[in-house]
Amino acid sequence: MIRSHRRFLSLVLAAVALIPCAAPSASPRKARIGVSLLTLTNPFFRDLGDAMKEEGAKCGFEVSVNSGEFDAARQRNQVADFIVQKVGAIVLSPCDSKAIVTAIADANKAGIPVFTVDIAALGSGAKVVSHVATDNLGGGRLAAQALIEALGGKGRVAILDHPEVESVILRTKGFDEELARQKAENGVTMQVVARLPGGATKDKSFKAAEDLLQAHPDLNGIFAINDPSALGAVAALEKAGRLAQVKIVGFDGMPEGKQAIKNGQIYADPIQFPDRIGRTAVQTIRKYLQGDDVEAQILIPTALYRKADADKDSSLKK
């Protein structure tokens, strides 16, 4: 048994040694880009990854897209494997903004530039060349404009919040700033009467919205910080039979959210453009490899998506 193992091993080693050597060539390789996203089960990141592959092919890069699937250790392993492959650049959306810092430091040491998309890395001791993400502050402003437009500048509104996340803090900050500005300049009287945590999920937001309707029977509008929260609020309003009286503004532009806008359940969404984030990230890498200076942070603006846009959208059901 042992002898046959040994013979097998020597055969294998011989095979490895005998692989034909290519003639010495001095032509440079295509730059390879290693990508590890938060997850590939969410359409946002799928679109982002697909756009990076597409744009990479145009720029002559070899892009391989992986995901950590919310597991910080798995993502760290993926980065380690990118380093061994000596890729030209690494793009990450961290599963854990703090735990990723050690992996980025390893890449820095190997002379590999690191870029982040959508989610930033937090912490010292690691260098990220550029961060490409949605302009959440501007998106929050748009959300306030949409709600003011829906309610004619009057009424009582609530926010379904999730202040544990940096991007959401920026969204509500933008919302508050825009509302304050409109109050001062345009005589808007709309006021925020409540902020409840909706957990950024459908089920928690459903419960929070039900509580909201009990506490504020005269509510006119809700700003939900993402589409799942908005859809949770829709469910609560439908149950209470008050969907017609309360206008909802969401955030994101996920397919399910867009469908709800088409059905008139959500008034409007500031939508994000994951494909633009992905393309911009690849273009930034190209600029970097050309030796040009790149900005440390690049924000992709959102745009308001209303029923009129949804009616023209061919990707939605009738």
């Binding site: 919310f70 597991d71 910080a72 250790a73 760290r76 599963c95 854990d96 703090k98 735990a99 810092v101 050690t102």
Partner: peptide
């Protein structure tokens, strides 16, 4: 070991 490798601890570690 996991916490040491990632220089942090989070309740999402070790899933599966």
């Amino acid at each position: 070991v996991q916490a040491s490798q990632l220089k942090s601890g989070a309740p999402t570690y070790g899933a599966m």
